[in-house]
Write a protein that binds this DNA or RNA. Sequence first.
DNA 1: ATGAAAGCGCTAACAC
DNA 2: GTGTTAGCGCTTTCAT
Lengths: 332, 332
Amino acid sequence: MRSSGRPTMVDVAAAAGVSLKTVSRVINDHPNVDRAMTDRVNDAVARLGYHRNAVAASLRSGSRDTIGFVSADLANTVYMQIAAAMSSVAVGRGHQVVIASSEEDPAAERRLALDFCQRRVGGLVLVPTSSDHSYLAPEVAHGTPVVFLDRPGHGIPADSVLIDNRGGARAAVGELLGEGHRRIAMLLDSADIFTMAERRDGALEAFALAGRRPDPDLAVMGLHTPTAAREAMDRLLDSSDPPTAVFCGNNRATIGALQAILPRDAEVAVTGFDDFEMSELLPRRVRIVAYDVTELGALAATILLDRIAEGAPADGGTRYVPTRLVDRGGRA
Amino acid sequence: MRSSGRPTMVDVAAAAGVSLKTVSRVINDHPNVDRAMTDRVNDAVARLGYHRNAVAASLRSGSRDTIGFVSADLANTVYMQIAAAMSSVAVGRGHQVVIASSEEDPAAERRLALDFCQRRVGGLVLVPTSSDHSYLAPEVAHGTPVVFLDRPGHGIPADSVLIDNRGGARAAVGELLGEGHRRIAMLLDSADIFTMAERRDGALEAFALAGRRPDPDLAVMGLHTPTAAREAMDRLLDSSDPPTAVFCGNNRATIGALQAILPRDAEVAVTGFDDFEMSELLPRRVRIVAYDVTELGALAATILLDRIAEGAPADGGTRYVPTRLVDRGGRA
DNA sequence: ATGAAAGCGCTAACAC
DNA sequence: GTGTTAGCGCTTTCAT
């Protein structure tokens, strides 16, 4: 073995008295290697404590068995669950997942995505923060497929995996309207966020289908935190003509609304988008527009791995993960 | 540019009419490069759409700016939060994080950890599943530091970052005893799990400090799911002499216990280890032994990156993340 | 301040 | 079935 560092295939070959190529064949489980040779090589490997250098291998072979996941916000448990689901699928197919978070910063997204490309990932899953992904065009052209997750991307051919935001919101608000609710509050984050705009539009579709118009005073947008949602809900409840129901655009809004509603035991039907841990333990009935987060991640990973395997460019197709309206809480 | 594939530094050098080395210097922001040269190179880079190949660079330089995280169970939101915190710290220090999950399978842990080493990660953070990590001894000896997270590892020099399980449990049960509770149930997972054994021992210490003995009939172990915990709690509540308080060893146990307690509105003081999303919305007071999950991940990443930076082997030290007893719920 | 040559550790061609 | 040779794309001497 060379004086410094770990043993290499050359060292193993020397120790086993065979050629470098034979060692490579044994290490990579190639067929057509003589049994005796294999044993001699394996002996030397064990003796020297040899481990294959995957970096060198992938440089030479051009193999790229890593996929990069650029989340928009890893603090959000939903994206972490997605990352976990992706990792599970990827590892099962001989890949691994590298994660990073743009923290909703377009510049960071770009930096991280291009950095992954420099490291020669086999493909990228992106939760878009920027509105233009043409900076990735050269990478896609050179064979790095991209899958957009949760939000659509722009400027490159890529697949997308989205939630059926519109349908979920339409079903939720539709059910409230069907039950006779007329004063339905809406607590939403900014409409600049794709999912929020979609959910709002779905809710409006439900009003239209019921032949009704939403009361603009009951719709509050730009709520980014549970606290903001709680304060908005408090104001609505304190008004002279409070809502009888509320539709919350994401789980932060739902949490905030409940923080306002529960202490005063207000009679408001609560429906929210996004399920959350422990929702079943809530002290009152809450309806949730739920979807299979694991499916979202697994689907994105599967599509990406298929693209990598087939070496074909993305066709720009969009897959929607369905939602369903479920009952939570109310058991206490 | 060569016929196939992406442009390389050689292509850029030819296009700019400079040497390969000059290109390398410009790309890597070396000082002492003439302004005119820099411009010519940058021109060629832009024209050819050149991107650095980080795989080739790290093969030659031996740099290793990735850290591997082998979680025991990525479906567990706590480990996902930890991964997110690690990624955040690592990216801030020019590294990236690769994640994988052993799913509590020692063989998988070994396979994943060694696979990361083949890919020449700069270091490993491991949530141990196996009880012997000597399989990593050659890697550690060759300069790959290891940090154990949440559970101690064995057989190699490595740092550890653990929660103060014992102290947290002692404080929680101690407070219940101090309030006069004498029939305190304990719902725990298997004692084979390090954290469970520690939490149980901490609870027993509290009893000892109070000069009391726990009732063995009230201690249920091996509860792996919320459902199992709920059934156990139901049985205890149905018994002739039910407990007046319960200490739950993890958040799954807490959830199960609440699922039993809330519907029947039983008068049982609930204390549980591990905080969870939405715990503040619970319809009754619940005390939680909480800790800063982000700190746990950030600490592990920081220690590992320091080891990598200093090139020094681990000293086998253990850092404890403190716990604190907090009040949750009871606002409704 | 710049360049020429060597080589990181491995796999892909091609011989034999 | 096995060995020889070349070279992946870059960084690192060392020379100029």
